[in-house]
Amino acid sequence: MSRQAKSESELTWKELEIGGIVTEPGSASRYRTGDWRSQRPSYDFSRCIKCRLCQIYCPDGCINETDKGYFEADLYYCKGCGICATECPTTVITMVDEGEE
């Protein structure tokens, strides 16, 4: 009875492994830290110079290179801290409130 079988939100106290030990390596990658976000990055790639600074500064390491060579946050993990928007030298990134278009 470990965490593989069910998601954390379904487990009862009886189903936890002793001491909450996690027996599946790498299972933290399933943790949706994107749920913490109140703002998300919005992009205007027409100004992007592909400098990669956003990717370097991202404290979560969740910014990936797209097929076209731009850089975009993976919203499954992005916590919406806005550091990428602050660091972008050409203001490609604007932070918008979640729930807004």
Binding site: W13, G20, T23
Partner: peptide, 24 residues
């Protein structure tokens, strides 16, 4: 040979269950 994680991160969705298990 059988890796485990101890003292893992316990978000609100699991912390109460962990404490109940400990108490019991």
């Amino acid at each position: 040979s059988r890796p485990v994680t101890m003292g893992d991160f316990g978000p609100p969705v699991i912390y109460s269950e962990a404490k109940k298990a400990q108490e019991v």
